[in-house]
Design a protein around this nucleic acid. Structure first.
Lengths: 254, 254
DNA sequence: CGTGTTTGTTATTTGGCGTAACACTTCTAA
DNA sequence: TTAGAAGTGTTACGCCAAATAACAAACACG
């Protein structure tokens, strides 16, 4: 049985010795694969290399993952979750009544994660790995939504607290608002909450695009010609600007 | 001889019949590879597939490219050049005294190119293809700078024409300006022109990051859940905002 | 027309993915 | 305690693509 679902019946009993060993092996495989990705700077890795590093032979890995795609799917889900955690952690260290500061925290940790994990960043937010076919409607999309929800939550809280000015973004004749409410109502709302105003949603996308642009340019080395200090300063400056444009109050100085 | 350099001596005589045939074959190989990339949506392609589509056998391709990396390098250089042309064309259809409009034209064509050519976009602005090792200081960096220069030129012209307000970006204590002038003087200036003020350079990076963020999110399908009209409207709105923040005048209505 | 170059071929090596068949360990139940 | 089932590993193998070697045909040019 390779299928990791259905751990018995519906009940979750204490994991047996074997189950623990299996989980540990799965974890070691994933960690080894990540190590290879980091080492060679690509999303490519060889089953045989993973096995060799673990002191096993390649075919043994197929006891744990049906094929390369299944391992990749697992890595993608993990990566989304970790990116989500990476931005949620620093965000939640800033008080809720400082949404500007919370946004800057999210932006900075998004960028840091991208820079520290370019391979995994490319895995989830770049072009799919050659030959990889994502499972339809699968766990990857859910994981992506969970990660995205961390940013949404920030704006939602700010709106709830009444700390969100109307954004500065032009919406000639309310076209965007109409389109968003017509076609994508359910996507616009964060999980478990009333809808964000369309204009705020638009502002959030603007912020995300800008953060993501910096993060991906930097992750792939396209800003290497700039000294790190300058990159830091420029990034922070840009983030303050987009936060302001989105209607967030200026971050409170720490 | 596979080495494409040294076409005789320094002189460029009329290309002989054989040279023309060779150039045509090289071109066909590249076009076939691009077709495969577009078709399968990845940066991966098989030499054997290219050869089959061309009615040849795989080893014949090695007469034209020493290995997969050499073909990739050629494709990367081409892609940079075409991206540069793709943004320069629409830009130059807008009058020089409308730099805001010229920026929007650049942004829109950058985005369109990314959406239409996600594979090539990933090739140049994403994570390197598995196993690919770029030649050091090679033709790829030069091509990248040529493409980037198209955006620089826009800001340079606007500054020359005195149509550039100081950007709205905060630079506390002029840290960014100092860093830029200290460390990256030559990179800040466009080719063949006096230096752009550091604050304008910063604004340009802000614009680029935002354009690139939208473009890459969309190219890899992360905005597919939004209807195209909404994406268009939101993108345009964001571009107007960043252009304004960068000190460009509002685009003149066509 | 003969010689050397270019461009193609087929045959072969190398290396990774994935499967098959088999061996050893561990858990479970009579 | 012990037989059998389930789980985990192994070696041997088939397949496919990259890249090289050795060879054959077409072409350019004296």
């Amino acid at each position: 049985m390779v299928d990791p679902t259905e751990p018995g019946d519906g009940q979750d009993r204490a994991p047996s010795r074997r189950e623990r060993a299996r989980a540990a092996t799965i974890d070691e495989i994933k960690r080894t694969a990540l190590g290879l990705m980091r080492e060679q700077g690509t999303t490519d890795f060889r089953f045989s290399d993973i096995a060799r590093l673990m002191g096993m032979t390649a075919p043994a890995l197929y006891r744990y993952f049906a094929d390369r795609d299944e391992l990749l799917t697992a890595l993608i889900v993990d990566a989304y979750d970790e990116l989500g955690n990476a931005v949620a952690g620093p965000r939640d260290e800033i008080p809720v009544d400082d949404p500007g500061g919370r946004f800057v925290a999210v932006a900075e940790s998004y960028r840091r994660w991208a820079r520290e994990e370019p391979g995994r960043f490319a895995l989830i937010l770049g072009l799919p790995v050659p030959g990889y076919h994502a499972p339809e409607e699968g766990p990857t999309t859910e994981a992506a939504q969970r990660a995205m929800a961390q940013l949404k939550a920030l704006f939602y809280e700010a709106a709830q607290a009444g700390m969100l000015r109307p954004p500065r973004l032009p919406d000639d004749g309310g076209v965007i608002g109409r389109l968003l409410t017509e076609h994508a109502e359910e996507k616009v709302s964060p999980i478990d909450g009333p809808p964000i105003p369309a204009e705020t949603f638009q502002a959030m996308l603007h912020c995300w695009a800008c953060v993501h642009g910096f993060a991906s340019l930097e992750a792939y080395g396209h800003l290497d010609w700039l000294p790190m200090e300058a990159r830091d300063a420029i990034f922070t400056s840009s983030m303050r600007l987009v936060a302001d444009a989105a209607g967030l109050p200026a971050p409170r100085p720490a």
